[in-house]
Structures are given as structure tokens and as C-alpha cells.
Design a protein around this nucleic acid. Sequence first.
DNA 1: GAGTCAACCGAAAACGCTTTCGGTCGTGAT
DNA 2: ATCACGACCGAAAGCGTTTTCGGTTGACTC
Lengths: 362, 362
Amino acid sequence: MGEPTRLKAIAAQLNLSQSTVSRALNDYQDISARTKQLVREVADELGYQPNMHARRLALGKSETLGYVMPWQDRQATESFLSELMAGMAKALAAYGWDLTVLVPHSVDEELELFQKIARTRHISGLVISRTYSDDRRFQLLRDLQIPFVSHGRSNDSNATAWLDVDNELAFAEMTAHLASLGHRRIAHIAGPEVYNFARQRTDGWRRGIGEAGLDPHSAPLEMTDLSFEGGKAAMQRLLALDMPPTAVCCVSDVVAIGAMQAIREAGLVPGREVSLVGYDGLEIGAWIEPPLTTMRQPQQSAGRRLAEMLISLVEGRTRPSDNQELVRASLVRRETANPPVSDWSEGRQGVRQTTRENSGGF
Amino acid sequence: MGEPTRLKAIAAQLNLSQSTVSRALNDYQDISARTKQLVREVADELGYQPNMHARRLALGKSETLGYVMPWQDRQATESFLSELMAGMAKALAAYGWDLTVLVPHSVDEELELFQKIARTRHISGLVISRTYSDDRRFQLLRDLQIPFVSHGRSNDSNATAWLDVDNELAFAEMTAHLASLGHRRIAHIAGPEVYNFARQRTDGWRRGIGEAGLDPHSAPLEMTDLSFEGGKAAMQRLLALDMPPTAVCCVSDVVAIGAMQAIREAGLVPGREVSLVGYDGLEIGAWIEPPLTTMRQPQQSAGRRLAEMLISLVEGRTRPSDNQELVRASLVRRETANPPVSDWSEGRQGVRQTTRENSGGF
DNA sequence: GAGTCAACCGAAAACGCTTTCGGTCGTGAT
DNA sequence: ATCACGACCGAAAGCGTTTTCGGTTGACTC
């Protein structure tokens, strides 16, 4: 297990020149079939693997893509991050490319990082995520001529490559689903407007409200950050309304789980007095009581697509605007979206007691 | 934003040779302070960043570490994976090193991957996780002379570098805690024995049982895979015993959450008739009803330490056996570990009714 | 004022690959 | 026999660093 075998070694063994061996392995046309055959045999007999650095230096490209982890807010999306990354890494491995993860501490540091990458070029393309509606990164990456694809759109992504879920459609459908169950007061717990996906989801909810023949202006809307506590607080505000909603579209599963907590603490049962739908399709949603109805998008295949798109961009086979892909989320029916019960909120005290007797044993 | 600036450019601008510039930037002793100063100024005025591939080719090392994602069983540990990776990436970034993620589909593919890395050397060290008691990877990595540190020990890790949590101590403490609350029948839902950590945890539980003056042989023990469903099924088996346990030590939070489900479905209340302690410190544990008592180990700092240890190994500053670190998990007191209620299991029917009335409104 | 010795710096090789540019064959046509 | 032409292959340059090895200064000693 001494020194790794180099091109030179296999050249020596066959009495060929190094350059011939190189071209044989790279399947050049001016090498005879017989020679190629021989070279290949000796190559994998000796377990030859090209030295990446030399190769990349000569080629001038890196065959390495970077994924910028969203690490601003410590938690939230974490759980499907690793799944997304696994999808990307697997797809890249099929091409012999590598995936390196970048973890900037702040927005400014992220922009600096881009500058550095632009100079060293040791990463030849980036996947960014957690896009803002107003996202400085797009402009900068274009200026720096770093190929990139974003997981999620922004105001500035018309001409760039992206993979996004149709958030608006998802929330329109979610709202329609709740309306079809008979709900008339369908609220929305929205995420921070700076996030593009949060805005899209609010838009979708609003569209759904309208399409259900309800009044978007009177529909209850609460904002929150993407946390359990935030969801809980937002739900508490909704419950304090004169006319509390009978159903709530939540911007994320984590927020929805927080909302469930608020509902329970008010002595009500999630999915009974107040229906709930989350978003993300987290597995844990199925493990809580009652299991959370939600919408899911496939994370692994998203990772794969992101990787494939970026490769083709880096290779120059396609233009950014050719790589825009909208995927559809699908409803995961569990147990928190049900027809409304008779108007509980007009006789709250009475209802609260009834609930206590029924909240266990689902 | 045309071509990135190279050594040559800054040499030309200062009428110096390329080699002088290189040595100035690398702080060689035989370059005058004045020259170094000048070179540095021009360097960052021009935004110079060394070409990684050239540098790594010349140096013969890669300044890139790899993290082998545990992807055998699709889920389980996912949630803290990204946190761990973020910790690693951040630590590495401080040294200017990169982290690439590797996602083998199977054990065999993982071993092949190691072979490849040994030849290309484009990754100069590995962090592996999800160690088995009997783990082929240790031997192979040693043979291939790839520096590595494992997150978790194995039978074969006496002389290698590792960072592990003291699983045995953690479960001994967990058991002691339950015993101190008054429990006498403390069961264990164990993970697959192939995983070293699962075995350690079972050992710890057994030790705790003994130290509490109880009989390890009669203490109920159930095995399961590391899944929600597995935990649920195991708990069901425990509940079906003649003398069901009043407390259960679960190998992981996910398993514990599954167990809670089984308890609820039996008409009982987790933390009341049956106390539970999980392990991992997952955030979601705090969001369920009732919040799950568990044990936590810091993931981000673990990532950082793993990275630091591996760097010092790759640099040859320390030997593997100098890098063995045992960290301690700490109990996170939530609401599923309480004193036992009076012997419910001898009058189960009656208890069941009582429970129904009290299970809501926590 | 010749010799010594630091202090500084430049030339050039090396890392291992890719790729361009010729060069050497044998073949077929003239 | 000569020429042209493919088919194959070797020599060598180049990618951008690092690092060894001398070589040139000037100051300093006696």
C-alpha cells in the first residue's frame, strides 16, 4: 500500500508514453483500440486513480459543487437538510463530482465567501437555499459569474436557475381542502415575509380563500418566525379573536406543532374545534397526537435535480433560464384536518368541558 | 471580474519574482519585512486567492476532510446530522479547510469508497459515524493509512482516534434517576446490538439496575430497530408482560416517542403509569404531549472537536491514540419521568378508566 | 582593502495530469 | 520508386503553486 500508482507507472509497465496512457484512458480517437484495451487492463490492475488536484489544475475546473447551508436561524428546516444533501451527494457521486458544505455565520460572511470562491474557483458551482424575496446573493453571484442554482425563487430569479416547489399552489390546495370540508373561517399563520416561500404561501392561501368564495380581507392572518414558540404564540392570538378560525393553514410543520400546543392549552382538540394543516411533511408530524395533516415535497429527488441542473450549468450545456423547475407538493392526509364541529366558539365555556373528556385515547 | 489574479500578476506589479512573492505570502524567514509588507498589500488589493488545485498538488495534501453520512437506515439520526456537519464545517473553515460529504449506498460501497480515496488522496481524512461493535472500516482505514476519527467507538478502536459520548454512564445515570424516583421495575428498549452505542447503552442500563440494588436478570429488556414503529411494538410487548415495567429507558428519542404512542393506545398516560426517558435530546421531544424527558449531548461542539482532532491527525501533530475523547450527556428533565403511581398494573381495568378522564389538558 | 557572513532574492525543478504539435510508420496510389 | 495520407504514438509545454539551491548584494571584521 505504498505510493499510489501514477500515470507514469502504468506507462512504464507497457512501454508507452505517459501522454498515450492519458489519452487512452480518456478515450481519445487517435489511440488504437488494442492499446486502449491494454492500458485499461493495467490501469485497474494497478488500481489507478487519477490525482484529482493535478487533474483539476490541468483542466482548470474543480468538479466540486458547494451547498450553502442555511444556518441563520438555528433550527427549523434542519430535519430535511440532511436528506436534501444526501440526494445531492448521491447524484454528484454518479458523475464523480464532490459536494462540499459551506456554513457562513451571517449574510455578510456568505457574500465574502462567494468572493473568495470566485477567485480560487475551487468550487465551480453553488446551490443556495432559503431564498429571500429580496436576495442580494443573486446579483452578486451573477456578477462573479459563479454558476448557481437556488432552491427556491426570489424577485431576482427570472433569468437564473432554480428548483422550487409551487408554494402558492400548495397553499391554495390546502385552503381548498379545508374549505371543501366545510370550513368558512380559515386562518393562516405566515412566516417572515423576507422569505420568498413564506410570501408565496401566504399568496396561495389568499388565492384559496378567494376561490372558495370567501373574503380574503376578513380572513385571519398572523405572522411568526419559523419556530415552535412562534407558532404557539400566533395560535394564541388567533384563539383570542372574537371569531376564532375553525381551520388554520400553517407555514410549516414546526409552526403547526406549536399551534397544536396552543390549541391544547386552550382546552381544545387539534383537528376537532380547530383543524390544522402544516407544511414540510416531517416524519415527526405522524408521531404526535393527533397526527398532523401536512403537505410534502420530495427532498431527496430535489437534491438530485439540483445537482443535475448545476452540473449541466457548470459544463455549459445549458443556460440558467433553461433550468427552472417547479415541483408540486402533495397533501398528506393525517388527522388534524376534519369538518368543523358545530359552532363551538360561540359557547366556549361549555365546549371546553366536553373536550376534556375526549382529548385522550386517540 | 475577468481572470483571477495569480502569483505572477502580483510579482509583475512589484518587479519581484514569483517565488519571492510566494514565500512572502507564506511568511518565510528569508524575505525582508518590507517586502512582505508590500507583497501583502498588493495581494489583497488585487484580491489574490491562491489556486487551491495548484497549491494542493504542490503540497501533496488536500486540506479537505470527508464526512461519511450514515445512510443505511433512511431516517433515525437525521435530525442532528446537519447540526453535527455544521459544527464540523465551521471548525474547518477557520483553518481554511473544506468538508465534503460522502454518501455510500451500502457498506460495500463504503469500503470501495475508502479504497478510492486512498489512491486519489483528494480527501485527506475521514470522519465516520454510526460505528458497529464489529466494524470492518477500522481495519481497512488503518491498512489504507487514511487518517480518520470515528464518532463512536468499536471493539477495534483502542488505538484509533474517536469522540464518543459515555453512553454507558448516561444510561446508568438515567436508570439511577428512575430508581431514585421510586421505580423498581425499570425496563430497557434496546437498539440493534450491532451498533456499538446500543450495546453500551444496554450495558449502562444493566449497571444502573445493579447499582440500584435490583436484579438485572429479571429486568425487562426488549430489542428493536431505531424507529418509531419499532419503539411502539417493543413497548406493546412490555405492556403485555405479567408484570409490566413502571419505567422504561429507551435507546433513542424516536424509539421513546413510539413507545409513548403504545402507552397511549393502551389507555395509559406516558409519565404517569409508565415513566419514560429517551436519548438524543431532540427538540421535538419538547413539543409532544407530555414533553419527553431525555438526555442530550452537544452536537455542534462534537462536530467541532471531530474536525479539530482530524486536522491534527492529518497534520501529523498527534497520534491517533492521543485523540480519544469521552463526553458526557446530561439529563434534560421534562415530564415523562415521574414517581410511579400506586401499583396500577395489578388492577388494570380500573386504572384505564381513571386515565381516560385525565389524559387531556396537560 | 581582502575576506566572511548575513540578509535577500531569482532561477528552476517538482507535483501529476491534459493537450497540442509533430514525427514515424505502413499502406495505397501514381 | 516516389508521394501522399492515415493511423498511432512521443515530446513537450502548460496549469499555478511550493521549495530547494545558488547567487548577488552590502555590511562588518581584521
